[in-house]
């Protein structure tokens, strides 16, 4: 099968290479660099944020490819839906496994808030986004042939401004130990306890959606869950988090899950290896002290 990678990164290029022949579309210099090593790279000069430009480029090339593969991002979901409708093609997001069989694609993805996997057999052409961390191979390196392309933007909207988001400088997906905080914390200042505990354990601080999205006590790079980051630490310690399915969806791959909650009926205890029923304000200071002692 022939695959076209859009928003090229290593995982998407590798996923495409497992299906056969492949090419990449690059908009702007950063993507041109990321696509290096792909046999063919279509180079579009223009604003990487212009979704209409990308859509036009893909629609122009789509006839030559069976599958469009992209990393799972908000922008790839946006253009993926739009292009699929124009191509009358299926759009399958957050794919965790992928292979070609008898001219069709066999794919798996999580559904129902990551409580089940769906196995699907899709016709081509198809558009896919791949979940992070599931296609971790090395794409073969070819000498790249660059083809210049100058499509007209389909113009979905006009960009009137861009503000970068605040960052807490964490890469929560890579943390081995995560101390994660939820609405059980009453004030922003109280999060200092979680940072102290994380420091004593040698970990990072994560959080539930309301802490980042509604209260904005932490930047979004800390946010764990279905709509946040998917994490896979050795230890995930959830403090004052109730354990709603959308939160659990982000921590399924953790090795050990521990939870502290003062409500013995909190759902998080169903998903935890070790659960402590206690007021976080009483136990966390003790844990900080004891964890620091263990280190010595």
């Amino acid at each position: 099968m022939k695959a076209l990678v859009v928003y090229p990164n290593k995982e998407a290029l590798y996923a495409a290479s497992t299906l056969g022949e492949y090419a990449a579309l690059a908009v702007g210099d950063a993507e041109l660099k990321a696509a290096e090593g792909a046999p063919v790279v279509y180079n579009v000069r223009g604003d990487p944020r212009d979704l209409g430009l990308r859509i036009s480029a893909v629609l122009q090339l789509a006839g030559q490819y069976d599958v469009i593969i992209m990393p799972s991002l908000k922008e790839t979901k946006t253009i993926g839906g739009y292009m699929s409708q124009k191509l009358n093609a299926p759009f399958i997001t957050d794919v965790v496994s992928l292979r070609a069989e008898g001219g069709k694609l066999l794919v798996e993805r999580y559904v129902f808030g990551n409580k089940a996997t769906a196995s699907l057999r899709a016709n081509v052409p198809a558009v896919l986004t791949i979940a992070p961390g599931k296609f971790l191979g090395e794409p073969p390196k070819a000498s790249t042939k660059v083809v210049e392309l100058s499509p007209q933007s389909a113009g979905l909207f006009r960009i009137a401004g861009v503000e970068p988001k605040a960052s807490g400088g964490v890469r929560i997906e890579e943390a081995e130990i995560i101390v994660s905080v939820g609405r059980g914390f009453k004030k922003k200042e109280d999060l200092a306890m979680a940072f102290d505990l994380a420091k004593a354990l040698g970990g990072q601080v994560g959080c539930s959606r309301p802490i980042a999205a509604d209260l904005k006590w932490l930047s979004e790079d800390h946010w764990v869950g279905l709509s946040g980051h998917k994490v896979r630490p050795k230890l995930y310690l959830a403090i004052g988090i109730s354990g709603q399915p959308q939160h659990i969806a982000g921590i399924l791959d953790s090795r050990i899950i521990a939870a502290i909650n003062n409500d013995p009926n909190a759902p998080i205890f169903q998903y935890a290896d070790y659960g402590v029923v206690e007021d976080l304000y009483k136990i966390v200071p003790i844990l900080i002290r004891k964890a620091a002692e263990l280190k010595k």
Binding site: G81, S84, Q85, T93, G113
Partner: peptide, 8 residues
């Protein structure tokens, strides 16, 4: 959880 229907 695909976000595809509005773009479609």
């Amino acid at each position: 959880y695909t976000g595809q229907v509005p773009p479609r």
